[in-house]
Design a binder for these strands. Structure first.
Length: 570
RNA sequence: CGGGGUGUAGCGCAGUUGGCUAGCGCGCAGCGUUUGGGACGCUGAGGUCGGAGGUUCGAGUCCUCUCACCCCGACCA
């Protein structure tokens, strides 16, 4: 490709809209352009890399036994009502009507469609197991798109769905996919860690996420250096500080004028935070919920949502708290009626706590569960935090931020039951197909690679997903000899199957070198009067500091070998 | 949806207490001189000041409404 004809211009200045590195670099390199919030056009450079990533994914999916299918983006809303997931997706679902007023959705994912499809063709255990996948555009009306391609509303996603006769088969499919995913990340040059995850709106049992560790990540990973335990903070468990265990004492009222938060109360009374019990108020599917836990611990809203089996959960507004006649700042479960009380297990870890007195400026000492109050539901709803104990080995946990670049789930039979995907087993009994699903966001993966591989000058592409393999960079094009050698090299290399971006622009060396660094093409070949004097050209790897001079004799072979040596080799 | 912010040329920005013809840098076009790490000179094109309404002799500037985009929180690949 001749740079002079390439659609997309490089930018010197950082676009004001972009604040994540990958976003800035992609805009500056002329790879993407935003059309509206969370919707992007892909220019040739981006599309080439995206296609390469897709091809790697395709290759690994095929190797693992997957069959590629094409599925509709336009889907009847009925199907989503039937699976019950329209509600789970809520406003994230893009909805529309056709001319006959039939309600449709733009597919946010394709489990429903594929289950319907496979359920139609698979009738016998002899037809199983099967794996189908597709790489297509999906639509989600995200409340807040952000970070360039990291979180968008229209995006390309690979989804593979596995169909098995039983849990054992599912375990095997899951294992294959996990391996395929590791291969994909290795080949795309993206370091990831696999962590335990909550299964979210999709539901199901086991679930793992593949996280690219980076500061700009949206998720928090809790991990243990010692034993390798790693989980999304939504899912992570931890060992909390031991409470004080002593003989139960009489409840005592104590004045706490103006002290509302746990910090204030603990400081005022001169006690540690873990010697208190706090209260937080939520609205779960319209019902107000009184949540209580030890003062040093934060609520994990995902765990709370799962414990309550709620589809919608949010903090209650001050008005709603007032209406429920709760005394914010001095609330406790003691003596409360007509409200559902949910507790974290931590209230059993310790004795003689300080808790609210349910009247302003007043707390109670020596509160003990279950002596002094009852709860409707108790479970683990605690947020794990760095510094707490690892649930596996008790060592101190760490935390990091990451981008979720893949998520695999054991779905089970939830969807097949709802959508009538049954097979007949060897005994002639009808059983629901056991499903799994495995997703990768292609654009997000691309952005994550840039987050992980760049310097102050620009992108540093791994060879296997670089838009071009070689950046051919002649200096002083008006020199006939330079022009002739460059043109010759361009056609020779292209003819040898090398992907060459040929900077045929009449710009100064500085401009060309800087653009070369910005675009991050792995191998740069510089041709100039200076190199030609010695009958040679200069080779420089984007990831290296120093160039090397190589002779023009056999240059095509030299470059071909260098390029293939730089590939992953899979 | 709650909180915060920004809308002026393709991009990045300036524009005073309202004042006459709306500027600067980059980029773009032409000419010339240069050029191994974002060169220089001259010339030129490019603007409904996000939109609507209002106040005023006069609005980029003040008021009301509205739209878009970005950032922080609740969702996810």
């Amino acid at each position: 490709m001749r740079f002079s004809k390439l659609i997309g211009k490089t930018l010197k200045e950082i676009p004001a809209e972009a604040d994540t590195i990958s976003h800035q670099l992609m805009v500056r390199a002329g790879m993407i352009r935003q059309l509206c919030a969370g919707v992007y056009s892909y220019l040739p450079l981006a599309l080439r890399s995206l296609k390469k990533i897709e091809d790697i994914i395709r290759d690994e999916m095929d190797k693992a036994g997957g069959q590629e299918v094409g599925l509709p983006v336009l889907q009847p809303r009925e199907l989503w009502d039937k699976s019950g997931r329209a509600e789970a997706f809520g406003k994230n679902l893009f909805e529309l009507s056709d001319r006959k007023e039939r309600r449709l959705v733009l597919g946010p994912t394709h489990e429903e469609v594929i289950t319907d499809l496979v359920g139609y063709f698979v009738k016998s255990y002899r037809d199983l197991p099967v794996m189908a996948y597709q790489i297509q555009t999906k639509f989600r009306d995200e409340p807040r798109p952000r970070g360039g391609l990291i979180r968008v509303r229209e995006f390309t996603m690979k989804d593979l769905y596995s169909f098995d006769i039983d849990e054992k088969g599912l375990d095997e499919s899951y294992r294959k996919m996990r391996q395929a995913y590791q291969n994909i990340y290795r080949r795309t040059g993206l370091p990831v860690i696999m962590i335990q995850a909550d299964s979210g709106a999709i539901g199901g049992k086991d679930s793992s996420e593949f996280m690219a560790v980076t500061e700009c990540g949206e998720d928090v990973i809790i991990y243990c250096d010692k034993c390798g335990y790693a989980a999304n903070s939504e899912k992570a468990n931890s060992i909390k500080a031991e409470g004080v265990n002593e003989g139960l004492l009489e409840i005592q009222e104590v004045a706490t004028p103006g002290q509302k938060t746990i910090e204030e109360v603990a400081r005022y009374l001169g006690i540690p935070k873990f010697q208190t019990i706090k209260a937080v108020f939520y609205i779960a599917d319209g019902e107000i919920i009184f949540v209580t836990l030890r003062g040093d611990i934060e609520v994990n809203e995902i765990k709370l949502k799962n414990l309550l089996k709620a589809t919608d959960l949010r903090l209650a507004l001050p008005d709603e708290v007032r209406q429920a006649e709760l005394v914010a700042g001095s609330a406790s479960a003691i003596g409360l009626k007509n409200i559902r009380i949910v507790a974290d297990e931590s209230i059993t870890m310790g004795t003689n706590f300080v808790a609210g007195a349910n009247k302003p400026d007043c707390h109670l000492r020596n509160v003990n569960y279950p002596r002094d109050f009852k709860v409707d539901l108790i479970g683990d709803i605690a947020l794990a935090q760095a510094g707490e104990g690892c649930p596996e080995c008790a060592c101190a946990l760490n935390s990091a931020r990451g981008i979720e670049v893949g998520h695999i789930f054991k779905l089970g039979t939830f969807l097949s039951e709802k959508l009538d995907a049954y097979y007949t087993d060897a005994e002639g009994i009808s059983r629901p197909i056991v499903m799994g699903c495995y997703g990768i966001g292609v654009g997000r993966l691309l952005a994550s690679v840039i987050e992980a591989s760049h310097d102050e000058k620009g992108i540093i592409w791994p060879m296997d997903i670089a838009p071009y393999q070689v950046y051919l960079c002649p200096l002083f094009m008006e020199d006939d000899k330079v022009a002739k050698v460059a043109e010759g090299l361009y056609s020779a290399l292209t003819g040898a199957g090398i992907e060459v971006l040929y900077d045929d622009r009449p710009d100064s060396p500085g401009v060309k070198f800087n653009d070369a660094d910005l675009l991050g093409i792995p191998l740069r070949i510089t041709v100039s009067p200076r190199t030609l004097e010695k009958g040679s050209v200069e080779l420089k790897w984007r990831c290296d500091k120093k160039p090397e001079i190589v002779t023009l004799d056999g240059i095509t072979e030299t470059v071909t070998q260098a390029v293939s040596a730089a590939k992953d080799g899979a």
